[in-house]
Design a binder for these strands. Sequence first.
DNA 1: ACAAACCCTATAGATTTAGTAGATTAGTAA
DNA 2: TTACTAATCTACTAAATCTATAGGGTTTGT
Lengths: 137, 137
Amino acid sequence: MLSKKTKYGIKALTFLGKQENRLPVSIATISKSENISLKFLESILLTLRKNGILGSKKGKGGGYYLLKEPSEIPMASIMRILEGPISMVPCVSLNFYEKCDDCPDENACSVHRLMTLVRDNTLQIFKNTTLADLCSC
Amino acid sequence: MLSKKTKYGIKALTFLGKQENRLPVSIATISKSENISLKFLESILLTLRKNGILGSKKGKGGGYYLLKEPSEIPMASIMRILEGPISMVPCVSLNFYEKCDDCPDENACSVHRLMTLVRDNTLQIFKNTTLADLCSC
DNA sequence: ACAAACCCTATAGATTTAGTAGATTAGTAA
DNA sequence: TTACTAATCTACTAAATCTATAGGGTTTGT
């Protein structure tokens, strides 16, 4: 299941992407508009800033803004930053690979094969969808 | 991420599906063969029995066995029993639907639309894959 | 008698979802 | 310049829930 962190993060990014200009938007503004706990949102936006998705401006008139055009931000990268691995098991993850303790041979593992299939499909969606696609409705 | 419960459950079912006959297999046998904590596996197989996937036989020579042919068991039903919803958010779930607290209009929600797409794809895989496909390697 | 499923309880640890308190920075007005 | 205000940033805490077991006793079939 998607964490609220990821869900809120995506909604906040969509909100920013829908802005006419690229002027900073305060956390409070997004929080109110999207019904997200302010302090929780604060930490989410901080993560996104530290990972190069958002820029920020302090002080009066400050806030957060997108560093790139929405069409240049694939959902895959957002998902990896906020949610972590896209795969359902670490042993099929491309970016967060971990070997299973219980599995002597990955290629013989039924779960491994099934989840590889799922990952391929999901990843394709997240790669081909950009933030712009989410903002266009 | 897939819980170990689901992962172990699938591995256990694959093990049972690979048996030549439909004779009961004890928890201990599966536990040893698949490197799964015995007590944990016990509760997993119990849920699968209560959900009509497995039958059980007590006493000597007892154990668990598949109630249907592997080819008759779609992975979607196993996933729903063990992992719960296939959707990444409750608001796009077909079998476990829940409305979001923060979302006034689902159709206007960017997360909702994206996750619907993901669910459709994932569900198709889980519907078209049966336990038999996992056992055939 | 024995072997096996069945059932109930507890629990350590991790994760999630925040809340609280304050520090820091930047612009604005006196 | 000084004070004020708006905003991000940082760190700590905490409740709630979930995960992955462990333990022990009960029941049933051979």
